[in-house]
Computed example of a mutant assay.
Amino acid sequence: MIHGHGDDLYKYKNVEMNFSTNIFNHFDHSRLFAYLSEKLPLITSYPEPAPASLERAIARQTGVEADCIMVTNGATEAIYLIAQCFSGKTQHILQPTFAEYGDACSMYGSRIHTLSKITPSDRFGNNDTVWFCNPNNPTGTVTDHDVVSAVISNNPDTLFIIDQSYSHYTLKRTLQPRECTRQGNVLLLNSMTKDFGIPGLRLGFVTASRRLISLLRSHRMPWSVNSLAICAGMFLLKHHEDYSIDTAALCSERERVGRLIEELGIMTYPSDSNMLLCRLPESDAATLKEFLVASHSILIRDASNFETLTPQHFRIAVQTREENDKLIKSLEEWMKQ
């Protein structure tokens, strides 16, 4: 899907508060900017054909072997590579969720089956793959770690693709890299984009067994990760303490914001992260989005194009308390019209 994602900031000139992305927008990148400015001469040469140096650095940090890590041009490149590698399988996708899972599988002609939930009693076959996002986008909910572990163990011949791009934004327990390398049927997706607030650089990585990573690597094209992105990744890993996310504070603020939005007559859904899925009682999210941009320089995510959702659905990710209060005041103005 080219159009219809959140963070479509490029369409607007006057946005001052961005709630449309699931990323916290207030990291201090000044040191990263200064570091990358010194690395600009690298753009005159080709990058590593495969970003092996960054893969080794991530492996050291996560405590797994470098042969179990594959760095990609954002998690989205990994999604399409996985869909290509396993195109002959039936793809089960937990909905509503990130559209690229289904789009990638459709591109390679796979059969797609929609799931509404995942339980330990679920049984899949050896020609099946199961995709889910944990925490999920757009709901922010987390499938319990024990449930995830049980369904993986109970289906050893089924491949599970688990996107944990937002794992730093929840207090709930999620899978750890070492757990996934021990399993022969799990591909774990992570996103430095979300962890460090750098969506424009496109950095993601996959953790899995050596066998699965070797298969994925055989399908990737050379030079997919550029030199500046590799340098940024190395810098961020070295200085990761400077980019810690106060997850508890964000989740507490999401609870507060959710209560206040409910008081306006707008439905909100349970969440375990910084995201909040909402539903208007009438009108539509697309109109609300344009109103907020034009009148208050606020950008939200029109969530109507997520499978199973409606034109009334929108999504936000909480930011600072001051910004959140401005959003609530703007929503109150909209609801009184």
Rank of each mutant, 00 (worst) to 15 (best):
K39N: 03
G109A: 00
V142T: 15
Y169L: 08
Y80R: 14
A285Q: 02
S244R: 13
T139S: 15
L237I: 13
T76Q: 11
P199V: 11
A285I: 01
D163C: 05
F196I: 10
F306G: 07
F306W: 07
V318G: 00
D146G: 04
N126M: 12
A249E: 10
T97H: 08
W334T: 01
G6F: 06
N126V: 15
F205I: 15
Y166C: 14
G204A: 09
H313R: 05
F235M: 05
A249S: 13
A50M: 12
L331T: 00
Y12W: 14
D325L: 10
L187D: 02
S273Q: 01
I58V: 15
S153K: 14
F132H: 06
Q312M: 10
V148G: 04
E307K: 12
P138A: 00
G63N: 11
N154C: 10
A303S: 11
L188G: 01
G258Y: 09
T247V: 13
R301Y: 15
M107P: 06
S304D: 08
E38V: 10
R56Y: 08
D128L: 07
L277T: 07
S191A: 12
G184W: 03
M70G: 03
T21R: 07
P281I: 01
T90S: 06
E333G: 10
A150T: 14
L309C: 02
L159C: 01
G74R: 01
R301C: 13
R301Q: 14
V148W: 02
K289Q: 11
E332K: 12
T119E: 10
R202S: 13
T143C: 10
L40F: 11
D242M: 09
C105K: 09
L216G: 03
S227W: 04
S283F: 09
T181R: 08
I230E: 03
W334R: 01
G88H: 04
I161A: 04
T268K: 05
S227R: 09
N154E: 13
H239C: 09
G125R: 08
E262Y: 04
G102W: 09
L201P: 06
C180Q: 02
T62A: 14
S214W: 03
S167L: 09
I261H: 00
C180W: 08
E55I: 07
L216A: 07
Q312F: 07
Q61R: 13
